[in-house]
Computed example of a mutant assay.
Amino acid sequence: MHDLVIETREHDLGGGFKVGRVLPFRQRRMVGPFIFFDRMGPHDLPAPIPQRIDVRPHPHIGLSTVTYLFEGQMTHRDSLGVEQDILPGALNWMTAGSGISHSERFDGMRSQGGRMDGIQAWVAVPEANEEDAPAFDHYASDALPLFSENGMSGRLIAGSAFGMSSPAKTHSPLFYADVALQSDARMALPAEHPERAAYIVSGLVEHEGQRYKAGQMLVFAPGGAPELKALGNARLMVLGGEPLGTRHIWWNFVSSRKERIEQAKADWLAGRIALPEHDSSEFIPLPQTVA
């Protein structure tokens, strides 16, 4: 059975680029190590795409950002000197550790415009890894395992599920997958992970006689292998893993310690977190308050 259904709430990232925020939610801050989950679209962006909707350089600590696109293209630049185009089906996994900054821009789509859609997730890391050196890993779409069985097909983005493991480097037991279901196909959530959720990207699904629609996240109670049935073609993101304990979140900072977040605020304000080497002409200032 599920123990919660989370509805998407609209959130403006600044500059008019709107996302659908799912996690964190007041009744459920995390699912396994996943502490943040935004749907970036679908948006039809007319040409030329204005720079004001780009995500300007901003800082992170104590988490990994996980970017996965369904459509469109983004350009990632960070303070490690990495510049990487993100394409549909590929995985960008940036670990902030003790501190990193990055930007995400629409450079590859700017002149022609186009459709943009994807998921930005944050994964908290164990306390022992919160102060690791920052790192960045990119996995092309053909590097991630594909699966197909009985009307269910998909890509295992990270972690272990459905009898396979992703090559993506993670810090704790988790799973994250992009799953397509044909009409009437059924999918069981992996039983080996204690915390699990399914976000409906498109279509309708049924669970225990109830129907659920795109934009809803079903969070399941521990135990068993909850089953979802597609009512027509459907697409889901399934995620979860081992819980890591309480985490504090303020703006772009995640930590097991409130005082560490205060330090990160001071570091960004004082310019102690470097800006991306190839994108240092502007940045998002520290907000006075966080909604």
Score class of each variant (00 low, 15 high):
111 S>V: 00
208 E>S: 15
151 G>Q: 12
86 I>G: 15
215 G>N: 05
240 G>Q: 03
150 N>E: 15
107 D>Q: 10
77 R>V: 00
127 E>M: 12
222 P>M: 10
99 G>I: 05
279 D>H: 14
246 T>I: 09
274 A>T: 03
37 F>K: 06
276 P>K: 12
133 A>L: 10
202 S>C: 07
273 I>N: 11
238 V>D: 03
21 R>E: 08
3 D>P: 02
3 D>F: 15
137 D>L: 08
208 E>R: 12
182 Q>A: 15
28 R>P: 01
181 L>V: 03
148 S>C: 09
103 S>I: 00
52 R>N: 11
247 R>S: 13
237 M>P: 01
15 G>C: 08
113 G>I: 08
111 S>P: 06
217 M>C: 13
259 E>I: 07
9 R>W: 11
259 E>N: 07
181 L>S: 02
280 S>G: 05
63 L>G: 04
212 Y>G: 00
162 F>D: 03
180 A>D: 00
194 P>S: 14
251 W>G: 07
47 A>G: 07
75 T>N: 09
126 P>S: 07
164 M>K: 08
105 R>Y: 02
142 D>V: 06
242 E>S: 07
241 G>Q: 10
34 F>S: 01
176 Y>T: 01
263 Q>P: 01
165 S>M: 08
18 K>P: 00
130 E>Y: 10
75 T>A: 09
120 Q>K: 08
19 V>E: 05
90 A>N: 13
27 Q>P: 02
107 D>P: 03
253 F>T: 03
128 A>Y: 11
224 G>I: 02
5 V>W: 10
119 I>G: 01
25 F>C: 08
118 G>L: 11
102 H>Y: 14
17 F>C: 05
71 E>Q: 12
5 V>N: 00
10 E>D: 10
215 G>K: 06
127 E>S: 13
228 L>D: 06
288 Q>W: 12
265 K>P: 01
85 D>G: 13
53 I>Q: 14
170 T>Y: 07
143 A>L: 10
247 R>N: 12
82 V>P: 00
118 G>N: 09
16 G>C: 08
78 D>F: 13
166 S>H: 04
188 A>F: 09
77 R>Q: 08
72 G>Y: 08
37 F>W: 13
272 R>M: 14
217 M>W: 00
172 S>P: 00
269 L>T: 11
146 L>S: 11
123 V>P: 02
34 F>Y: 15
191 A>P: 05
114 G>P: 05
151 G>N: 11
62 G>R: 00
86 I>C: 15
244 L>T: 00
193 H>G: 05
56 R>A: 09
202 S>A: 15
227 E>C: 11
43 H>W: 12
172 S>N: 02
142 D>E: 15
55 V>N: 10
117 D>M: 13
217 M>N: 02
152 M>Y: 01
265 K>D: 06
70 F>N: 05
138 H>F: 15
